[in-house]
């Protein structure tokens, strides 16, 4: 057991007492006891279903036409990858995720820098700024759809009418930007909080030293703060991407993937394939492809978390 620990990269930490060289099997199980319930239920409800998805992805199966059930090899994958709807959904997912993450990160950094300063009512401002993330996403989606985007009496058009802009039917004319706008509003607090935690973990001594040396505010930010923030920004971007890829609520509630396929992302496409077309095999294959994509991002995310983790332990 101790050898496998040593083999893990830099697994030893200062906080841990050195492991006694040998424990009996009984002792080891006694230690594992508290962990097992959580581990077992997690495996049961995440890993088992994932194996199920893998299994179904290799089968030709439609819940409405059981007579066609059978082993299908990789044909579902071929069907899915050759499907123009699937490819459009991949593109939509990438556009949606990248735009939302980049915009909310840019705003998040700006807001965090503001909040890092001292001013009157900072606590209240911080509380107001995190609220969009707390609002139930389903409620937020409907609120944006009807109260913000509505062409006749939406607040967005009213605001623009001040500048002489004509009425716009946001969801029909600009479906993707509308969804991105709503999601950016929702995710900016997430980015902001992580970046703010990074800003506040900066050593004041170094900043003070820079100021004494005559470095300007911008130079200090670019040369000292940004490099320090790098890992926090990376972590926020990676976690944000993983969660924004999974976006379902606003698609389901605002656009239903439309108009046409304009806002159909992968989660919504898979939902449709599963629960509206009952094409279990194809939905499962698409699901496996999404998991593979997520694993790629998650690998980087875990690496960043791991590096933050090494430093802290």
């Amino acid at each position: 057991m101790s050898t496998s620990l040593a083999a893990a990269p830099a697994a030893t930490s200062r906080r841990r007492a050195p492991e006694p060289p040998k424990r009996t099997a009984a002792e080891r199980w006694k230690r594992r006891g508290p962990l097992l319930p959580a581990l077992l239920i997690t495996i049961l409800l995440t890993q088992l279903p994932l194996l199920g998805t893998l299994y179904y992805s290799l089968r030709s199966q439609n819940l409405l036409r059981p007579e066609t059930n059978g082993f299908a090899g990789l044909s579902n994958y071929a069907t899915v990858l050759g499907d123009e709807y699937f490819r459009a959904a991949v593109v939509n997912t990438l556009v949606l995720t990248a735009s939302t993450v980049v915009l909310s990160m840019a705003l998040g950094i700006a807001f965090a820098v503001l909040l890092d300063k001292k001013f009157l009512g900072r606590g209240v401002v911080r509380t107001l700024l995190i609220t969009p993330f707390l609002v139930m996403p389903a409620a937020a989606a409907l609120l944006w759809k009807h109260a913000m985007f509505n062409p006749l009496f939406g607040m967005l058009n009213w605001l623009l009418s001040v500048f002489g802009v004509d009425k716009i039917d946001w969801v029909s004319q600009f479906p993707m930007p509308s969804i991105v706008l709503m999601l950016t509003w929702q995710w900016t607090p997430f980015m902001m909080l992580i970046v703010l935690a990074g800003l506040q973990s900066q050593s004041t001594e170094i900043l003070e030293a820079a100021r004494v040396d005559g470095a300007g505010a911008w130079a200090t930010f670019r040369r000292i703060t940004l490099p320090h923030l790098r890992r926090f920004i990376e972590l926020a971007i990676l976690l944000g991407s993983i969660f924004v890829v999974q976006t379902f609520d606003p698609i389901f509630l605002i656009t239903q993937g439309g108009p046409g396929q304009a806002t159909t992302n992968l989660p919504f496409l898979i939902y449709q394939t599963t629960f509206r077309a009952f094409e279990v095999g194809e939905a499962a294959a698409a699901g496996v492809i999404v998991v593979v994509g997520t694993i790629v991002i998650a690998t980087f995310a875990l690496r960043v978390i791991s590096s933050l983790f090494q430093e802290e332990t």
């Binding site: 893990a8 962990l35 199920g52 699901g287 998991v291 875990l302």
Partner: peptide
């Protein structure tokens, strides 16, 4: 800590990253 506690820790976190659509059908 149990043996290989780090693996368990990262196993937990990786399940949180799994897209729900990938397991909804099973």
């Amino acid at each position: 800590p149990v043996g290989r506690w780090k693996d368990s820790l990262f196993f937990f976190i990786s399940t949180r990253m799994m897209p729900p659509v990938a397991i909804i059908l099973p």
